[in-house]
Each structure stands twice: as structure tokens, then as C-alpha cells.
Design a binder for these strands. Structure first.
Lengths: 108, 108
DNA sequence: ATAAGACTTGTCATTTTTTGACAAATTTAT
DNA sequence: ATAAATTTGTCAAAAAATGACAAGTCTTAT
């Protein structure tokens, strides 16, 4: 796996956009959304809608799976940040995830 | 800190309820919710509303902070599970959380 | 067998949250 | 100063979460 970004997902989009010298308006059009909202996304004031990941990957010719990982880690990182979840608690959360895995494979 | 549960939050509530020999109806009443919905919560089909944590703590005479941690780790664990987030990706998510911390302390 | 209590499931209206869209700033580059 | 780019505020629409109730199953006592 390619090493993932140490940025927010919004910053990552901005990075890509700048690399490709697109304006907000131009990229927003390609993504089928409003430039004002894309601005908010890049500035972390709104979330990028997961449904648009395939489109985003196509526009910048990125591997969708890796992009999804970028997105996923951003989302979870955000939650960790917002809830002030410590490493110790995160460890517990991981164990609980594992518990769900065991349980649900049996159950389903 | 007391060691946290390796159960879902719903299962934990059920555990507490059974220990105290309360019916769904009885506990639901104390929590100001419908017994049918409490059943769903215990069975993981709905989320417990965070707003009720203080009430829940009071009913069972629990430390609110610890209960919150129980809740928090359940929530994040659930997200880890649902998104199939691997340990490796979780590590990245943690770094991103750290990045947000640094950034937002500066920014705010 | 059946009646009662405990629990579960399905559905739907209400509430809350998220999203899309537009107008009006503000900033940046020329 | 102008024009383009970006940001911010607001609000209606869409989507998701919640509350409530009805109807179902399952168990247990009689």
C-alpha cells in the first residue's frame, strides 16, 4: 500500500486540485457540486460525501481503494479527535471491534 | 480506570438490567423511553442516545466518566467494525487525529 | 390449553442532522 | 479598480436517527 497522507481529506483534495491547477468551480463542476460547498469541504467545514469517491478517483486517476482508505482513516481520525479518545481507549475500541467481528460472523 | 467491558454497549445495558432484575419495561420507564426501543438497543439494532448516559449512570450508580468511555469505545469500535478498518489503517487514523490536534490547537 | 408477562419486530410520524443551492461577502492577482 | 477565486451565511430539501405504537413470539405459571 502507498503510504497514506497526513492531512485531512479536505486538505488532500485541495492538494490534488492545486496540483492539477483547477479552480474550485472547475473541480466542483466535475464532482457535480457547488463550488461554495467544495470550499467548505476543503476547509473541513463539511464532509465529502462518500458517494463521490469514485468520481474523485476518476478525475485524478487515483486508485479507488487507496482513496477510500484515505477517506476512512480521515473519518475515524476525526472521530478520535472529536471525542478526545486516548490511545488507551482506542485500544479498547479496537478490542470491541474484534469482539463484534467474532460475534457477527457467528450470528449472521 | 476500571477495565472496560468487552461487550457491545447494548449487551452491557442488558447485563446491568439483569443484575438488577429489572424488566425492559421497568428500565425503559426510568430512562424515559419505550421498552420496544430499549430492546432494540440491547440487541444492537439501535443506538443508545448519548443524552441518556447521565440518567443511566444514576440508575445503576455508575461513574459517568467511565460509562462515557464505555460508550465512546463502543461507538468507535462499531465504526472500526463496520468499515472493516484494519489495525494498520487504524494506526493511520490515529496519526490523523494527532494531526488535527496539532492543527486545531494552533488554529482555534 | 391458555392466560399473563417479558421480549422482539415492523412500521411510521416526528425530530434531528446532513446536504445542496444560492446570494453576498472577502480575498487575491493583475 | 476590476475580475476571478474563494469563503461565509442562510435556508430549503434530503437523509438519517428517534419515539411511539401495534402486533407478533416465546416462556412460564396455573
Amino acid at each position: 500500500m502507498t503510504s497514506l497522507m497526513e492531512t485531512t481529506f479536505g486538505e488532500y483534495i485541495r492538494l490534488l486540485r492545486n496540483e492539477h491547477e483547477l479552480t474550485l468551480t472547475q473541480l466542483a463542476a466535475k464532482l457535480n457540486l457547488d463550488s461554495a460547498n467544495l470550499s467548505k469541504i476543503e476547509n473541513g467545514k463539511r464532509d465529502f460525501d462518500e458517494k463521490r469517491l469514485p468520481k474523485l478517483a476518476k478525475i485524478f486517476n487515483l486508485n479507488l481503494t487507496e482513496l477510500r482508505n484515505e477517506y476512512l482513516t480521515d473519518q475515524i481520525g476525526k472521530q478520535i479527535y472529536e471525542t478526545n479518545c486516548t490511545k488507551q481507549l482506542l485500544q479498547v475500541a479496537e478490542e470491541k471491534a474484534e469482539y463484534r467481528r467474532l460475534k457477527n460472523i457467528k450470528t449472521a
